[in-house]
């Protein structure tokens, strides 16, 4: 399947603008960015996509083996960059996509020129001195709550999810599929998201990096944000006044302003 169709890739803004690639996290889809992207479409080439298994993307694109690790998702990101021939990309990754961005950057430093990590966590489960915020039992409980919340998910919904060929703006039909995923894929994605340990990968980051941390985030606590900032050489840490794990939805202006500040400070490669 065509990479751009596989990921429901949408491109906005001037074609000669610096590419700004937004990657959504676990749970929902590219619409997570809809309040943030308008701040950038005048100046930047804004690229949005859905991870396989999210949004209106055909669940058949999900590959059990490839997507059993975050590397597989990073490979998807690289393929999107290749397909659009993007250079000097600023990759904005939310939640698990922050780590997917880290892996993609390490794989293709020629394509990815800067990283914005929103609510990143290299490991959710506590480990000796490292505080991730969760125990292994907590994560398995999440898998259980996914199961009970998808109880009402029936095969009747699947055609709605797959049927958005003409990619409408966020209308009724898209809101109906927002945050809805095939339960089996959601469970697998949750597993790879919350059981991964990417602490060792942070040192591989070789480009200017902004860590955007919410003041109060139960999923990625501030200690974790600091850890990421301290481990990535030369990174910048900005603590947002926003609370929760999704500042892109709860505080889009503040989030966009912090990203814009950072973009001004990282000159494009010549």
């Amino acid at each position: 399947m065509d990479v751009l169709a596989r990921h429901n890739v949408t491109v906005h803004g001037p074609s000669d603008g610096r590419p700004l690639l937004f990657a959504h996290g676990f749970g929902c889809d590219q619409n997570m960015w809809r309040y943030v992207t308008p701040a950038f479409t005048d100046e930047y080439r804004v690229v949005l996509f859905d991870h396989v298994g999210a949004g209106p993307v055909d669940p058949a694109a999900y590959d059990v083996e490839r997507h059993a690790t975050l590397q597989g998702y990073a490979q998807d990101v690289v393929e999107i960059c290749d397909a659009l021939d993007l250079h000097d990309v600023v990759l904005v990754g939310h939640s698990v996509s922050a780590m997917i961005g880290v892996l993609a950057q390490a794989a293709r430093p020629d394509r990815i020129g800067a990283l914005v990590l929103v609510g990143p966590s290299p490991r959710y489960i506590d480990d000796d001195d490292y505080v991730g915020g969760f125990s292994e039992a907590d994560i398995f409980e999440l898998l259980g709550s996914l199961e009970s919340n998808y109880l009402g998910w029936s095969s009747a919904i699947a055609p709605v999810i797959m049927g958005n060929d003409d990619r409408p703006e966020l209308g009724q039909e898209l809101t109906a599929s927002f945050c809805r995923t095939d339960p089996d894929i959601a469970k697998r994605f949750a597993r790879v998201t919350f059981l991964s340990d990417n602490r060792a990968d942070l040192a591989d980051v070789s480009v200017p990096t902004l860590v955007l941390q919410c003041r109060d985030d139960v999923i990625a606590p501030i200690e974790v944000g600091r850890y990421v900032h301290e481990t990535i050489p030369g990174s910048v840490l900005t603590v947002l006044d926003a609370t929760g794990h999704c500042p892109n939805l709860s505080a889009p202006e503040e989030t966009a302003a912090a990203i814009a500040d950072f973009l001004r400070s990282v000159p494009a490669r010549s």
Binding site: F134, S135, A137, D138, I139, F140, E141, L142, L143, G144, S145, L146, N149, F194, D217, V218, I219, G244, H245, C246
Partner: peptide
């Protein structure tokens, strides 16, 4: 805890 993750 699982519910908190789902909540966010």
């Amino acid at each position: 805890p699982g519910g908190r993750l789902y909540h966010e």
